[in-house]
């Protein structure tokens, strides 16, 4: 089988490994905690596979590491994400809203913000497809 896009393959690999890690460390915890950890794992694997050249991946990893160092990673991540989304939908439209949504977009000029947004959208849609396929296969195998 050919390997047309190694980047998304790397994303799949990172994400699978992160999933196994999540299970090993948090198999006994509740479903919500596991879901948040999986979300963190999804973002981290996405940022890792995007590489350090992109500003958004660097900012995302920095944020995740800071959250992990604070010992309240999941709650902080979730709260901030929810607050940011709510504020963006309420107040900021246009470039300001985009800055709030794209990680690391606060200190960019408009031109590079658009570029990073394009790359971020690409990676995010790949990640969503990957997670969708994993969820589909899991539900398929649950029926076996």
């Amino acid at each position: 089988m050919e390997n047309p896009n190694p980047k998304s393959l790397m994303a799949a690999f990172h994400f699978q490994r992160a999933l196994s890690l999540v299970h090993r460390t948090a198999s006994k915890s509740s479903r919500a905690v596991r879901g948040r950890r999986i979300q963190c794992a999804a973002y981290a694997s996405m940022a890792y596979s995007a590489g350090p050249r992109r500003a958004w991946s660097r900012a995302l990893l920095r944020r995740l590491r800071r959250a992990a160092r604070r010992r309240q990673p999941r709650a902080g991540w979730r709260r901030r994400a929810a607050a940011g989304a709510g504020a963006a939908s309420r107040v900021a439209t246009g470039a300001a809203g985009l800055r709030r949504l794209v990680p690391g977009g606060g200190g960019m000029d408009y031109c590079s913000l658009l570029e990073e947004t394009a790359d971020y959208i690409k990676c995010l849609s790949v990640q969503v497809k990957l997670m969708q396929s994993i969820a589909d296969s899991a539900s398929l195998c649950g029926q076996l």
Binding site: L19, V22, R34, G35, A41, V128, M131, A138
Partner: peptide, 20 residues
């Protein structure tokens, strides 16, 4: 897309004991 990631991670967390 971000909401989808959140939703799918919850879904995987609920579905995934077998996978894990």
């Amino acid at each position: 897309l971000q909401n989808q990631v959140e939703f799918l991670s919850m879904k995987i967390a609920s579905l995934s004991p077998i996978l894990y």
